[in-house]
Deep mutational scan, measured.
Amino acid sequence: QVALSRTQVCGILREELFQGDAFHQSDTHIFIIMGASGDLAKKKIYPTIWWLFRDGLLPENTFIVGYARSRLTVADIRKQSEPFFKATPEEKLKLEDFFARNSYVAGQYDDAASYQRLNSHMNALHLGSQANRLFYLALPPTVYEAVTKNIHESCMSQIGWNRIIVEKPFGRDLQSSDRLSNHISSLFREDQIYRIDHYLGKEMVQNLMVLRFANRIFGPIWNRDNIACVILTFKEPFGTEGRGGYFDEFGIIRDVMQNHLLQMLCLVAMEKPASTNSDDVRDEKVKVLKCISEVQANNVVLGQYVGNPDGEGEATKGYLDDPTVPRGSTTATFAAVVLYVENERWDGVPFILRCGKALNERKAEVRLQFHDVAGDIFHQQCKRNELVIRVQPNEAVYTKMMTKKPGMFFNPEESELDLTYGNRYKNVKLPDAYERLILDVFCGSQMHFVRSDELREAWRIFTPLLHQIELEKPKPIPYIYGSRGPTEADELMKRVGFQYEGTYKWVNPHKL
């Protein structure tokens, strides 16, 4: 086992960053958080920038500027975001240094004079007029057009580079997404736009490419001749908990499936790229999406959770019991969808996408189930092999396979070949997804960000279904809070070829 401390991990990262040409360590950078008073800024962006600063992973002359409508001070920003920093008493001095680099400007999102004030403020910072500028839009999409237009007109660096990070949702359907994309691309070049999907920053999602293309053993079996089906799962054990009003506007397909799960599907299904260059990788992902037809209604199961009468606390409440959810809402909190990649490698292999709230566990994984062994000599005792990439929690890679049961006879039983990170790298604290992705933006690497043509294809696949749901308002199937979801989803999976045995229990190697 390799035991690495946080300091050692960050030392390795620093070495990698400083050796590259793309990370300008000594240049002045300004990180501007648009929507600095909001939840995302408070819980994710400010803490992430602090962790990067604490670990010495930001360029040395980096300033952080918050911008929002609320009249706040840096002290206010500190008060609301610091509880999420997880700072230790030993880091007190470092924390003071961090907040000394912070400033805040209040202004409207659609007022040109406010942006001119913001620009004057940035120019007044040390070497601010020639600094590289990175704008993070932690804002609702309704203000994107006004904000990007004003940034472009008043706040661009004339000497350094300018980059803009856009948070999902990128529209509600193909038409609104196209409108937003066309607007942003009329102001910024594609190499300046970073559409963030934080799932692409997760260690195991990034590991998929290495697993596939750096190991000879997987190449020959990664196709329709050997793989019976692919299941991509995202499960949350909690409901909307008072935030249903926002969720109800989008629903589970827009929230998770059309982005996170579809991105994971691309990494499983794509061909080997010409290189690890950002556009070479994204070219292959677009090719996969172009091979997927629009979702067919007979390959869809929609569910909505109801309270568990035997549960406790939140578990007793259904989705419609959330006071922020519109009365009688038919918005799905669970969806199972089957897609097919219609190309030579994957023809006929079902890709089953499942996601839901208020389920029995927290889990995100990719599961490849292989065909049955031909010419069975073990009297149907063999179960199908599976390769599982567990994204969260407890990152893991393992192969479910058959071995001989101890004893006199040739009785096979299920076991696993474990390729888990935790076994080799004991207690290594890896940077989280937002840390990686923000560092990628500083480096100018777009590999783990969504390109406009990729986004367009993703919406093309799901828009007809979303429009049909909005028009017909089908009643989702009720499922109990804390269950596996509607049984109809299991029946759909069985119908397209997935075999669920229920006889195997994964042993978490992190707890051995």
Rank of each mutant, 00 (worst) to 15 (best):
R254K: 07
R254G: 02
D255G: 00
V256L: 11
H260M: 03
H260F: 02
Q263D: 01
M264H: 02
L267M: 13
S275R: 08
N277Q: 14
S278D: 07
S278T: 08
R282N: 02
R282K: 04
V286S: 09
V286P: 00
V288D: 05
L289P: 05
C291T: 15
A297S: 15
V300G: 08
V300Q: 08
V301L: 08
G303I: 04
P309E: 14
D310I: 09
G311D: 07
G311S: 11
E312G: 10
A315Q: 14
K317P: 09
D321R: 07
D321W: 06
P323W: 13
T324W: 08
V325C: 07
P326H: 06
R327E: 12
S329L: 02
A332V: 05
F334N: 03
A336M: 11
L339K: 02
Y340E: 12
E342I: 10
D347A: 09
G348I: 05
G348Y: 00
P350N: 00
F351N: 01
I352K: 00
L353Q: 03
C355W: 02
A358P: 04
A358R: 06
N360M: 01
K363Y: 00
V366F: 08
F370S: 04
F370R: 04
H371G: 10
G375H: 12
D376R: 07
H379A: 15
Q380M: 11
Q380D: 15
K383P: 14
R384M: 05
R384S: 08
R384C: 08
E386G: 00
L387Q: 01
I389L: 11
R390N: 15
P393R: 06
N394W: 10
V397M: 12
M402Y: 04
K404S: 00
K404T: 05
G407W: 07
G407F: 02
F410R: 10
N411I: 13
E413R: 09
E414Q: 15
S415G: 15
E416R: 00
D418N: 07
D418A: 08
D418V: 00
Y421G: 00
Y421H: 05
G422A: 11
N423C: 10
N423S: 15
R424Q: 05
N427H: 08
D432W: 07
A433F: 04
E435A: 09
L437C: 10
D440H: 07
D440A: 06
V441A: 15
S445V: 10
S445W: 12
S445M: 11
V450C: 04
V450A: 10
R451S: 01
E454F: 07
L455K: 03
R460L: 05
L466K: 04
I469K: 06
L471D: 13
E472Q: 15
E472K: 13
P474D: 14
P478Q: 14
I480T: 15
Y481I: 09
G482W: 05
S483L: 08
E488F: 08
A489Q: 14
D490V: 08
K494I: 14
R495M: 12
R495W: 10
Y500I: 06
G502S: 14
T503Q: 15
T503Y: 11
Y504N: 05
K505T: 15
K505M: 10
W506I: 02
